[in-house]
């Protein structure tokens, strides 16, 4: 009965969705279909998704394929400068790009908490669509589940991405050599700082914006330079963790300089106030590139022509002094080891 009536009426629109997410929307029944057809299909808008099959069947490629997946659980899910939606697209796209891959397809899996305002869900899905378009990827498959109120923090999104790596490109920490330059594409710690106050429920007013951004333009601009050894985006664990991981993987020492690094004034401010170290705060739209010394200047010059990396700078060099460890040259001229954090940073008073 109902189906007949639906079929005859005008196509459902977002306004017809219930005000808040309901358990039935994840049950696979009519409400699930309604959600997919009114929200995801029109916004993500591509033939693969429109087919509404159990899978997307993609065209073959002669290039090597890169595959990456990431779960996003950020709190709060809408934060200054972005939201979990663009983060989930940019995060996975950037992970593909760090291997030199051209990102092509994404899948998106949603875990929604019962009671999530539909308006916010729509806003987030719209942001994903915009981010995907900007990144040049299509969201070709997805899944939606709804859990009971209290069982999730608003919503979680998992994205999986496929990209293609051009022949001959072999970026990896194993390529790093002593003497290489370490470049970072801009200020660090912005995203981590933007969610800090919220995360600890501490009442601060700040204008700090997350730097969530797609790094496609940056990577594409410099990808043809043969001197690029490898790239990595300093997300979780921040710049310090990334240079430590690269040091460990290469068996060399990435030595960065405190005086060369750009950290935004208010990011530093909140770190001073809460007693945290910005070098361990996540960036979501920055990359670290290790580049052969003779190409460092050229790489920097090109990067600075791209909006997302206009503040790129050489922040250090690779040495073979302390194999397997990253280090920081402090501005008083000392060099100390940059270790992985053994525990999560918490605000402190002492």
């Amino acid at each position: 009965m109902n189906r007949q009536r639906l079929a005859r009426s005008r196509p459902l629109a977002i306004e017809d969705l219930p005000d808040v997410v309901q358990i039935a929307q994840g049950s696979g029944g009519k409400l699930t279909h309604q959600l997919i057809e009114t929200l995801f299909v029109p916004l993500f808008d591509n033939p693969y998704l429109k087919a509404l099959g159990d899978q997307a069947i993609l065209d073959p490629s002669t290039e090597r394929m890169a595959l990456s997946t990431d779960a996003f659980v950020v709190k709060p899910y809408i934060f200054p400068g972005g939201n979990i939606g663009d983060l989930a697209v940019n995060g996975t796209v950037n992970d593909l790009l760090m291997g030199g891959a051209t990102p092509a397809y994404l899948t998106a899996s949603f875990i929604l908490e019962e009671g999530l305002p539909t308006k916010e869900l729509v806003f987030i899905v719209e942001s994903m669509a915009i981010a995907a378009k900007k990144a040049g990827v299509q969201i070709v498959a997805g899944d939606t589940k709804v859990v009971e109120r209290g069982a999730a923090d608003g919503l979680y999104i998992t994205t999986t991405g496929v990209g293609f790596v051009p022949k001959g490109l072999q970026w990896s920490p194993a390529q790093i050599r002593a003497g290489d330059a370490v470049i970072v594409s801009g200020t660090v710690g912005d995203h981590g700082a933007s969610v800090l106050a919220h995360r600890f429920g501490i009442d601060f007013e700040s204008q700090i914006q997350s730097d969530t951004a797609c790094l496609r333009d940056v990577v594409m601009a410099v990808r043809d330079l043969p001197g690029i050894r490898c790239m990595r985006d300093p997300t979780r664990g921040g710049l310090a963790t990334t240079v430590q991981e690269l040091s460990q993987a290469s068996g060399l020492n990435l030595r960065i300089r405190e005086t060369s690094m750009a950290i935004q004034e208010d990011v530093r401010g909140i770190c001073e106030v809460l007693g945290l170290d910005a070098l361990y705060l996540a960036s979501e739209g920055k990359l670290v590139a290790v580049v052969a010394p003779e190409e460092a200047d050229e790489c920097l010059r090109i990067m600075r022509t791209v909006q997302e990396s206009k503040d790129a700078a050489v922040i250090g060099e690779v040495t073979d002094d302390i194999p397997g460890f990253a280090s920081l040259e402090t501005y008083i001229g000392a060099v100390r080891v940059l270790d992985l954090l053994s525990l999560e940073q918490l605000p402190r008073i002492c």
Binding site: D277, L328, T330, Y331, I332, G333, A334, V335, R336, C350
Partner: peptide, 16 residues
């Protein structure tokens, strides 16, 4: 004070 310890360790002061 622990705050001084922190600053000393963070800056690698003992080395220089």
């Amino acid at each position: 004070c622990g705050g001084h310890t922190h600053s000393i360790v963070r800056s690698g002061m003992e080395q220089v």
